[in-house]
């Protein structure tokens, strides 16, 4: 069964919220395992691994460095060098927080890796703010690779004029200006053209819109989304009702 983009978004979001609310190590680990399984099944494990490593490795390392060595609130000291004290509480705090953050990050990443952006845009393009938000999201994703290649083209054009970037903060700031000015200028000018084109094609209109792309949204998934959102709200309410339970 193909998931409607809003369904995957709701599933990922509510899982992230519930994991954060529950704050239980086993649940976090279970979510991590589930995401790993799903990404294997979906064939996105390599891209997931690369992206997740880029985000989570520094985050987790930072957490363990920070709380593993410096946790003034900790009482059970395992070792200490000078001002640094390794405490059980600190390590546990770092572990729990790492697992919980990893679970949330991974489940959201899985969502963005498997979702079809055009479908999402079509689903969001109901009217008003949705259409505009969908535009910002999709346009950014389209422009990013184009601009990376354009920056490379500008660099080439300037190298052909004898630009050799040298060391030193001021020379680099100058180099920043040389490359950023043509880039920003062309982007701003193009945006002006695009704005006129979009307005001429009725993008500024406030009336109802239709969508050329068909995104099927079975009633079952609509109900599922409601259930997921209610569950997330319930988890938050429960946590706020009993702020110290769990952990």
């Amino acid at each position: 069964m193909r998931l409607h983009p809003l369904t995957s978004l709701a599933a990922a979001g509510s899982t992230a919220i519930m994991t954060t609310a529950a704050a239980s190590l086993p649940l976090s680990l279970a979510v991590i395992a589930a995401v790993a399984g799903l990404s294997l099944a979906g064939g996105v494990e390599r891209r997931m691994l690369a992206a997740a490593a880029g985000i989570l490795v520094p985050l987790v390392a930072s957490l363990f460095f920070l709380h593993g060595l410096f946790f003034p609130e900790g009482s059970v000291v395992l070792a200490h060098w000078g001002p640094a004290r390794v405490t059980v509480e600190g390590l546990q705090f770092a572990l729990e927080r790492s697992a919980q953050l990893s679970a949330a990050v991974l489940v959201l990443l899985l969502c963005s890796f498997t979702i079809s952006v055009p479908d999402l845009v079509a689903a969001l393009s109901a009217r008003g703010v949705h259409a505009r938000f969908a535009f910002v999201l999709a346009s950014t994703l389209t422009l990013l690779p184009a601009i990376t290649t354009r920056l490379a083209r500008i660099r080439q054009a300037q190298e052909a004029r004898g630009l050799v970037i040298t060391r030193g903060v001021f020379r680099r700031m100058a180099a920043f200006r040389w490359q950023a000015v043509p880039l920003v200028l062309s982007l701003v000018e193009e945006a002006g053209t695009r704005a006129a084109a979009l307005e001429a094609r009725g993008f500024g209109a406030t009336g109802p819109r239709t969508s050329y792309r068909e995104v099927t949204d079975p009633p079952f998934q609509r109900r599922l989304r409601m259930v997921l959102l209610l569950a997330a709200a319930a988890a938050v309410a429960l946590r706020l009702w009993q702020p110290t339970a769990g952990a």
Binding site: S139, E190, T193
Partner: peptide, 9 residues
Amino acid sequence: AAALSTVRE
């Protein structure tokens, strides 16, 4: 190219 919406697949 600048006249395209950049949001359609």
